[in-house]
Design a protein around this nucleic acid. Structure first.
Length: 153
DNA sequence: GCCAACGTTGGC
DNA sequence: GCCAACGTTGGC
């Protein structure tokens, strides 16, 4: 049994919120067009834990958890010219971009805001703090535990 | 709405 | 292969 890994995925709630994910149950995480984020998704295994983070929000915060339910497969929206994020360089034969499926987990009874993360020295090395722009980031087991503790009511 | 950070593109 | 220009992201 491989060790479980943890991740953080960002979304603008006006585009796709944690509530939307809960409503859908699970979702294809399509539209990622950044190599580092893609590489992180390709490293995901079924059962890995995901922190769901709301960016461009008031406040910006980790609002819930999700679980990886399908490992990386080609993001077909890339070669669909009518999709929201077409990339003519990616084709069915030679896909560039990949996505995973995630399933909604639990709400954090008390969302962990970016401000709170920044105020916590043990979390100061999180990608969220040091490389805020990356949309799919690795999280350590220690960071996960701390955030779970902070997120309890 | 602004601006800094940063990834990507394209000319040379 | 370098680097300037440009576009995008995200915090504030």
């Amino acid at each position: 049994m491989a060790k479980k890994n943890y991740w953080l995925m960002k979304s603008e709630p006006s585009t796709y919120s944690f509530d939307d994910l809960k409503k859908d149950g699970d979702s294809e995480w399509d539209g990622v067009r950044n190599y580092q984020a893609r590489n992180n998704m390709q490293a995901m295994k079924v059962g890995d834990g995901v922190l769901f983070y709301h960016s461009q929000s008031k406040p910006n915060a980790i609002v819930g958890t999700a679980v990886v339910v399908k490992e990386a497969y080609p993001d077909f929206t890339a070669w669909d010219a009518k999709s929201e994020h077409p990339d003519p360089k990616s084709t069915k034969e030679k896909p560039i971009w990949y996505m995973v499926d995630i399933k909604a987990g639990k709400d954090l009874p008390s969302p962990v805001s970016l401000e709170a993360v920044k105020a916590t020295p043990a979390l100061s090395k999180m990608w969220l703090v040091t490389h805020s722009r990356l949309s799919v980031q690795p999280v350590t087991a220690e960071e996960w535990d701390i955030i779970m503790r902070m997120g309890k009511a």
